[in-house]
Write a protein that binds this DNA or RNA. Sequence first.
DNA 1: ACTGAGCGG
Length: 140
Amino acid sequence: MALRAAVSANHQVGMGLAVKAFCSSFSSLPFSLPQSTTENPPPAESSTNLFVCGLNKRTTSEGLRNAFAKYGEVVHAKVVIDHASKVDSDHASKISKGFGFVKYATIQDAESGMKGMDGQYLDGWVIFVEYARPRAPFPQ
DNA sequence: ACTGAGCGG
């Protein structure tokens, strides 16, 4: 019974694409998506709302807007803050969760800013920009 | 406290 089954469990470098969830490096997938069944490729509903993730914990909304205002007019930029951080006193009681949202004036600006800031560095951390989900209290 | 995934009010 000298059968070598499972020669190598996992000998991959794992340095390529770690597609676990969002915040993927580039949207360019080396694999062909079997989405040829129906001709309806909705990669991401183009919206003025942009979801930015990978931000630094010290990055603030102004930093986001300042970084995204170079690619278009940012109507509103907001970084999600965690309310769990509460220090006795002093400031720095609230830090960002690491992601935020950027609202552009038009779709073209949003797309430009997304493709412009996607994969770039911000405060020493690589940020990723995607279209935010249609999460509006008022459905248009 | 902070760890790093994830879509806010």
